[in-house]
Design a protein around this nucleic acid. Sequence first.
DNA 1: TTTGGTGTGGTCTGGA
DNA 2: TCCAGACCACACC
Length: 805
Amino acid sequence: MKLFLLDANYEFSKIPKIILTCKDEEGNTKTLSYEEFYPYFYVLPSEGKENQLLEKIKKVDFSKAKCKLVSLSIVEKKIGMQARKLIKVTIDDPAKLQKARDLVKNFEEVEETYEYSINFYRRFLIDKSLSPASWFEAKIEDGKLISFKPLQANFLPNLKLLAFDTEFVEVEGKEELIMISVYTPTKKYVITSYDWPEKQEYVVSVKSEKEIIRKFIEIIKKEDPDIIFTYNGDNFDFPKVREKAHEYGIKLSLGRNGKEVKFVRRGRVSAARIEGRVHIDIFVFVSHILAPFLKSEVLTLDEVANELLGEGKKDVSYEEMFEIWKSKKGLEKLAEYCLHDSYLTYRLGQFVLMQIMALASLTTTLPFDASRYTYSQLVEAYYMKKAYDDGMIIPNQPKQEEIMKRRLQPAYKGAIVIEPEKGIHSNIVVYDFMSLYPTIIVTHNISPETFNCGHEECKQKNKVPELNYHFCTKVQGFIPKHLYAIIKERKRIKAEMKKLSKESKEYEILYNMQYALKIIANATYGYFGYFGARWYRRECGASAAAFGRHYITKIVEMAKQEGFKVIYGDTDSIFVTKPGLSKEELEKFAKKFEEKVNRTLPGIIELELRGIYKSGIFVTRQKGEKGAKKRYALLGYDGKIEIRGFETVRRDWCQLAKEIQRKVLEIILSEQNVDKALNLVRETIEKIRKREVSLKDLVIYEQLTKPISQYEQIGPHVKAAQKAMGRGIPLGPGSIIPYVITKGKGSISDRAEFASFVTLEDYDPEYYINNQVVPAAARVLKALGYSEQDILSQDKQKGLTSFLK
DNA sequence: TTTGGTGTGGTCTGGA
DNA sequence: TCCAGACCACACC
């Protein structure tokens, strides 16, 4: 029977039992169990002490750890490059693995213990090569999985998806659950504790809060979804609803087996797990994985849905909601709004589901886990599985003390950024290395165990530039081996994609597969230097960076030799010009240079011609006359402008200043009309003075990165947050604080107010002119020789205008 | 618990 | 009151 693995778990009564939730090809749910698998850990004996230690462990009273010893064996495994004999200790109860390990770890013959903190179901998936979110051919007897083998298949089974959302309102100092909306493609519900005649057909009116929860449980059971999407369900909807349920003595039994929602602690945060179904909290996935690619200022459902789906929330504020509920007038609007949230959550769920499935399948983790992992966890999960397959011991996670030590290490030297030639340039050729760090790691065999291998030969053949390090050339390293596999697989998939229509389902699946591969490949370099990493080795990160500097420097030299003028470069890219050539000539010339360079680059390192731009602007730094790095704008031949680093792309500048700066850049690059730009800025200044601007364009967003008490310096956003908290708004580390600078006395911080408490009358025009709009515009105009004064002074402007005309 | 280093710029703070 | 340096956030790659 062909099955698709969705979720896994285990039970323990006398023996451990793995429970697998699967879907078959018809979309039926199959719950299987597997019984011949036991938890274990490894003990590394000091050299030659294997048998001595084995005898000692035999005599250990494992009942002290409330478990039984199942078996002991001596196995050979690789630790780094070395083959070592280890004792495999197998016990019966997965929950007691750490306790059992504690009973033996302090024996004098023990050098180290390994693999004692791996989730039991993860252990099972890894050891049996059973990948979640993938198909396998299964032999089943009596609901028990007897044997199976993985299948290659690029499609998803028919999954029942559902999203829900809750609404709470504070009544007399107590939070009241007033609505739960549920969205599926075929059925919509809004459950609420009030009845009114004009209600929509999807509104289910019940008598009380308690009944809302009852009805909700009933609906989930009836709809029987495979996947439940929420937006912030881990930290809001599920904990809140469960708390309410418990108040009324109801169990929040949403699991397929009737089990209650469980909260799995993972460090500081917890995740809501529903057995037999996959709860995906989209907010967690977005904030961990998608956020770096989003422009959204805040990761609210509204903003994220807007950016990813082009569809925003219905505009109902909390105050409005409160009013409607209190007065019971306009409840249809409230119901519609609530349902719309579920709808958006559902749509976002559709959007991210394939990505999550691809990541889960690639890293052999459950969709539940993969959707909550950070970059480092995904990378680590991928290599953990590969380590098992290679007969390697999985390195331990660093202990608290080790983490502290690692964090205190000073930063190593990173990439080169070339100081730009300020001003406007035309016909700019941009080259960049394709996945520079991953290809360096593979080409130079950079891995923790190949580091400084000791072979004289490798010291010569594979020395790291500038550093007294080298990497082995005789044995392929663990990380390079699997990183290379990722790069090759991604290339293969991309080639495959070209044969397909972009609208096809298969294309979408392949797209998500290559995206998952890209995530793992790109995060591997940073992972080497991450303090929490199992495969931690700063020298590997430092070496990859050193090779990177070496190659970019080499390309710069070659470009100069070729007659190019190098105007900018950052890490893996160079921007060059060659005056006096037509566009066509330049294209040809640029292409030839790319080919020439690639003939000299070793291994899989490759330079790519990213494109030729019509023009581009580089500005000066605020202090001094130097060209500013990481801030530029390019105008393509298609008329599109790419803006990097400028205030326009930063969230800690108000929308108005950003918009004006963008327009100034556009005018300067596309029309070369300084005059028009100056006028635009001046008109805007007038509007600010006359309060003819929208308040939301004046809001500045900044994140609280730590508890308020830990701030040494109280900046505007901290002050605004303090004041807002005084008014009962819950804020903490991670919160993004929207604030407006108001007029009055004191420092800027003193005058920063939480945005929702500010009206149009309150804002300080002078601040927005002098500290927002003018500096943002001047940043661009200064590169052309205009100062803030030129912008502000009317007289000079007039003269200038007539002169230019 | 947060993949890494490089870089810009605003605001605060405390000493001259 | 002025200013340098520290702190802080956010961008680039």
